Simulated scan of single mutants.
Amino acid sequence: MVTGALVVIVVAVVVLSILHRRSQRADAADRARLFERVVPLVQDARLTCDGGGYPVLTGRLAGHPVTLRAIVDAVTLRKLPVLWVELVVHRALEVEGTVNVLLRPLGTEFFSPDAGFAHELAPPPGLPRPVRVACASAYRAPSAEVLAGLLAPATELCGDPATKELSVGRGGLRVVLRVAEGDQASYRSVRRAVFDHPRVDPDAVLRAVAVLDATGDRVSAGEVRS
């Protein structure tokens, strides 16, 4: 009987191990498809792995190099995990320094550079609250008029609940958008950030790129100077 029990235990362990490996492979394959609806829009599209299981997409959109990467946020207590995507449009801009807009700040945004911007600015009219607008120092701070002009094209995008952060700096423009919220059952039971087949919306990406380009174009055309 002891031998029989041991055989059953060994078989059960083997079966569970096989099922676990299959689940891991299926999860990895699903993560790899995060940008599958965006890739056809991107010129010279290239997918690489960031080490977290999700791909990084690089290429060109609207004539500028872009980078899209996933961010898994599971550090905020009493909140379900969130899958964000960071979109960066790389282009040289003649600004004094980076202006960062963090919407609904919680102080737990590990992916945000906000903590490095000590000088807080008064949010221009039209930006939703709560919001923190900041730059590195008072010496690089744009005037209220310049700030309003700089962020004018992004006001509607910032009002979208899916938008978390927007930055304008010398190296380009950046926005962070929500893709999905974690599965409640998985998180409550085993504290795992599990998302139900998340896919980045191509329309959301195109809209964000259009806003970032409009903002960058205003700077390049000399309409705003920070």
Rank of each mutant, 00 (worst) to 15 (best):
K164F: 00
D73V: 05
L34R: 07
P130C: 10
L106I: 04
E94G: 07
T155M: 06
E156Y: 00
A32Y: 13
A134R: 03
T108C: 02
T67L: 11
A138W: 04
A221C: 05
A115E: 14
P124H: 01
F195L: 05
A5Y: 13
G116M: 08
H197L: 08
L6V: 06
R170L: 12
S220C: 14
C49V: 15
V56M: 00
P40Q: 03
A28P: 03
A134N: 02
E223P: 01
L61M: 11
R140Y: 02
V190A: 04
A193H: 15
I9F: 07
L147A: 11
N100Y: 08
G171Q: 13
A204V: 00
T67I: 01
L127T: 09
G149K: 09
L102M: 10
L166W: 00
K79N: 12
E156K: 02
G126W: 10
V89E: 09
A141C: 08
P124R: 08
F35E: 10
T108G: 06
R78I: 10
D213K: 04
F195R: 06
V211C: 04
A28Y: 03
R91A: 02
P153F: 07
G97K: 11
D160N: 08
R69H: 14
S220Y: 03
D50K: 02
T215V: 11
S137L: 06
P130H: 13
D217L: 00
L61D: 03
T58W: 08
L34E: 11
L83D: 06
D50F: 09
A12H: 01
V176E: 07
G169D: 01
C158A: 14
F195M: 03
G4R: 06
P130A: 02
F35A: 09
S143N: 04
S220P: 00
V56C: 00
A154M: 08
